[in-house]
Amino acid sequence: MSESRLLLHARAAGRAFLLPVSELREVVPGSPVTPIPSGPPGIQGVVLHHGEFLPVLDWGVVVGDPDHAAPPAVLAVLRPRLGLPLEGLAGTVEAPEGGLNDPPAEDAWGPILAGLCRLGNQDLPVLDPDRLLALLHRLRKAR
């Protein structure tokens, strides 16, 4: 199977989700996040990664659930150099044939999803990094 069809099966902000492996730089153990004074909304702070500061996403602001800003167990580093704090990893799965379904309109994750992927008997959200970055830019502009 090609890498572009491989999905990372992870959990963050209390919800299981999928992320195309092709969008990942690497997955590293979590480390304490240093907050930035007057830092941008949607970014909880930075960690040092390969000698550079890596911004770490604040799921609480992005998906509207402020209870999930705990120290990450694992950090998924996206290609555009953004760290996604994860609560855990389940492994990788092959993307099934067929397209994605639209998420329900009331889904708080809606603005950052590519769609829902049917795996077994459950619909898992598939994260779209481009939409996530666009949301972060919107949040910053709105500040």
Partner: peptide
């Protein structure tokens, strides 16, 4: 070390 654009904070 400079802050990347995504983490840019005014005054820092």
């Amino acid at each position: 070390r400079s802050l990347p654009e995504l983490a840019h904070a005014p005054g820092i």
